[in-house]
Every structure is written in C-alpha cells, then in structure tokens.
C-alpha cells in the first residue's frame, strides 16, 4: 500500500510539471470546465422557466443536484479523465507491455497514472460552490448525512470512471481507437438528469446495470429524503456490481491482449 502511495506521489509530480508545460492550455482547460458548469445551470434554469417541478424535484433540489454532479465531474476530470483518454491508446499501441513487466499492478498504472493539475482548480471551485448550495439549502440537512454524502460523491466519481472503463475495454477485442467512448458520452447525459424522470424498466436499468443515476441522483436523494438505508444499500450494491465487472473484464482483456500494435 505504501509503495502505491509513493508511486502515486510520483505520478502527481510528473502531472504537475507536464501541466505547466502548456501554460495557456492550463487556463483554457479551467475555462472549458467552467463553461461546462455554466451551461448545466443555464440548461435547468431554462427548463424551470416552463415548469415548477422536474422528476419530483423543485429548483432548490435541482440546484443541489447540479452542484453535486459538477463536483463529481470535476473530481473525475482531476483524478481519472486523462487516464480514460490514454487507456485505449495504451492498449492499442502496445504500451501496456511496459506496465505488464513492472513490479506493480498494470491496472493501477493505466487507471491512475495521469492526474489533471488544471482541473484541480475546478475541483476546488465546485467544492466551494457545493458547500455554498448546501449552506443555503432552504430545508435543514442532517450533519451526519452531510458527512456520509461526501464519500458518496467520491464513490460517484469512481463509479463514473469504472463505468467508462467498461465501455473502453472493448478495445481488447475490437482494437478500435476509442472503444465505445462515444456511446458512453451519450449515456453520460443520464447522470446529468434526475433519476425521478425515469420510470419502469429504464429506471431499474439506470439504477443497476448502467448505474448513471446512482452516481449523483441517489446521493442527493440520500441527503434530502428519508429512506436513507435503502438508498445506501442501492448505491453500495450497484457500485460493487460495476467494480466486479471491471475486474472480470480486465482479466479477460489481458488474456486477449496481443501485445504491441494489436
């Protein structure tokens, strides 16, 4: 464990020096994410011009939901996003060979090597913003629930990352340049909508098999509603399912991996 922490500290150092190589791009990226957050808020504000409730949530709940998912997005962008970019390229180009021969987990290398220093600024900003929304929330929120809510957000970001990896791991078999990344990006919109709008099989689908609604919607429900135990069980169950699938797929993928320029 200490070895991996030391290794991660090295990754961080390299990432910061790499980020400073392109100083202008560093700020472009900060601005890019800020623009994305701005659009998310405007999107829901435009919808609330025409309705008072969406998926059972009023505008205050919706603002909390948006602040939650932009925080999750910022967390993902900071810790995982660059790795998802390189993941299929490394497998296709055969860079995985290098990691397979290292005395450390090859998955650890591929999944955590890149840290986006520029997104760290956005992570801090979204953190402050989420804090502001929580502080100004019109109904009282239990401090204990807020304490549990924070790890649920980190789980949401990790779950998002792991779900993305499932879509990317298809490159082990198809050798295509980006796997099914485009399908994931389209599906990701489900995470940006409250789970209350879905019903029937589709709702079950997004709460279990493709748990986009578990990432941000359920943590907000946990915080603002009363059936906390069942929501927690649901979040843990869906997360464990996805983590197991990633683990199995990774092992199967490695068996299928045909080395350089596959």
């Amino acid at each position: 464990m200490t070895r991996y922490l030391r290794l991660y500290a090295h990754f961080l150092r390299f990432s910061f020096s790499k980020a400073m190589e392109f100083r202008v791009d560093f700020f472009f990226r900060v601005f890019m994410d800020l623009f994305f957050y701005f659009v998310q808020f405007v999107f829901f504000n435009v919808i609330y011009l025409h309705t008072n409730m969406l998926g059972g949530w009023n505008i205050d709940q919706m603002q909390l939901f948006v602040a939650t998912y932009i925080f999750i997005d910022a967390f993902h962008m900071t810790f995982f996003a660059n790795n998802t970019w390189w993941f299929p390229i490394s497998i296709n180009r055969g860079d995985l060979d290098y990691y397979l021969t290292r005395p450390a987990s090859s998955f650890f290398f591929l999944a955590f090597k890149e840290f986006a220093a520029n997104s760290l600024i956005n992570l801090l900003l979204t953190g402050f913003f989420l804090g502001y929304i929580l502080f100004n929330y019109p109904e009282p929120l239990s401090p204990l629930k807020i304490l549990v809510f924070l790890p649920l957000l980190i789980n949401g970001a990790f779950l998002y990352f792991m779900t993305f990896l499932i879509f990317l791991m298809s490159v082990f078999w198809t050798s295509s340049p980006r796997g099914f990344a485009d399908v994931f990006y389209a599906g990701e919109k489900v995470m940006h909508r409250p789970d209350g709008i879905f019903n029937g099989y589709m709702r079950k689908f997004f709460l279990t098999i493709l748990p986009f609604s578990v990432m941000a919607s359920l943590p907000v429900r946990f915080l603002t509603e009363n059936n906390e135990t069942s929501i927690l069980v649901q979040i843990i169950g869906a997360s464990l399912l996805i983590y197991s699938i990633v683990f199995i797929l990774w092992r199967l993928g490695l068996k299928n991996y045909s080395s350089a320029s596959s």
Binding site: F180, D182, V183, Y185, A186, K189, R193, F198, N199, M202
Partner: peptide, 12 residues
Amino acid sequence: GQTFFSLVVAYY
C-alpha cells in the same frame, strides 16, 4: 448507441 441514449434522455 448515441441515438438511443439521446432519445431516451430526451423522452423521459
């Protein structure tokens, strides 16, 4: 896949 998700999200 993209078409399916775009439609599902918009529909609901």
